[in-house]
């Protein structure tokens, strides 16, 4: 695949599932101003963003925040078209969640019909609710991907190691590498299926049993591999824990300023929403 002057590999299982290989490729190779920002800063901003989107229901603030996050994503020369394809899962998730909630909200009816005598009314407030929740989901997804795709994995894992207690840090340190291997294994099996005319989607009804066997095979192979990995670790004296020696780049002065300004803005929004009738997390 050719993307923005770079040749990148595309080995995803589906266009709508974020490709871990691609994400890591961008994280390891892209060198923009965002890659040079300390991971601690990006992590702090992630916390503030989560805080903000949990607190506010203001459509303009959410739309503005989404524009900023999307702008940062594009500015980091990350693949925007891929991002839109990856939105499929969060959009489906949000719609399935509020597909029922959005109906019969108080407000002006936009669509109205009845099913078996039960009235179904979609109001302007119902549509607003859908838009707000979609924006919140897309902001979280876009920024999370931006964070992952502009942060080298060794820094990411070192942060996890320093933030989380054992065994969570151990799980993170080990899981990432084997996620790749399991994906590669699944990809290899799917390739073998596709090479003989099978496919993940179009023949799933016809070949349900075969796919069940594939995933069982992946499970069994993963289990066997984990045994071999454990054996290799024991052979080097593994006694229950290991760490990373990688140092996470420290924050520059301007990054403290940015975090401070963003934190102040979040506080202002929170206070404003409180003054306007209390914070109702959505």
């Amino acid at each position: 695949m050719h993307d923005g002057g770079y040749i990148v590999s595309a080995t995803s299982l589906s266009d709508h599932i974020p490709d871990l290989n691609l994400i890591t490729y961008y994280a390891e190779t892209r060198r923009t101003c965002f890659s040079r920002v300390s991971p601690w800063t990006k992590f702090s901003l992630l916390v503030l963003i989560i805080f903000l989107i949990t607190l506010t229901k203001d459509l303009f603030i959410l739309a503005g925040l989404y524009s900023i996050v999307l702008g940062a994503y594009a500015g980091a020369r990350l693949p925007v078209r891929k991002l839109f394809a990856w939105y499929a899962l969060p959009v489906i998730f949000v719609l399935s969640l509020i597909g029922i909630m959005a109906w019969n909200e108080p407000g002006n009816a936009v669509i109205s019909f009845s099913i078996g005598g039960i009235p179904c009314i979609l109001t302007d407030n119902g549509i607003l609710l859908i838009i707000i929740l979609l924006l919140k989901a897309l902001i979280a997804v876009t920024y999370s991907l931006f964070f992952l795709m502009t942060t080298r994995y060794r820094h990411f894992s070192a942060m996890i190691y320093r933030i989380f207690p054992t065994p969570i840090d151990q799980i993170f340190l080990m899981a990432y590498r084997f996620l790749f291997l399991t994906l590669a294994m699944t990809g290899a099996i799917l390739k073998a299926v596709r090479s003989r005319g099978g496919g993940l989607i179009h023949s799933i009804h016809m070949q349900g049993q075969m796919f069940a066997e594939i995933f069982a095979l992946v499970f069994i192979r993963s289990f066997e591999r984990s045994e071999r990995v454990h054996k290799a670790m024991i052979a080097r004296g593994y006694s229950g824990s290991f760490g990373t020696a990688v140092e996470v780049p420290a924050l520059h002065l301007y990054e403290y300023v940015i975090i401070g300004i963003c934190a102040a803005l979040v506080i202002v929004v929170a206070l404003r929403d409180t003054a306007m009738g209390g914070i109702v997390p959505l």
């Binding site: 340190l173 670790m233 990373t244 990688v246």
Partner: peptide, 23 residues
Amino acid sequence: FQRSDDQLFAPTVLDDVMFGPRN
């Protein structure tokens, strides 16, 4: 080991090579 993928498990090369000495 015969399969390097079974042996290399740490996030980075440095961490993996340091694993034994740390143990």
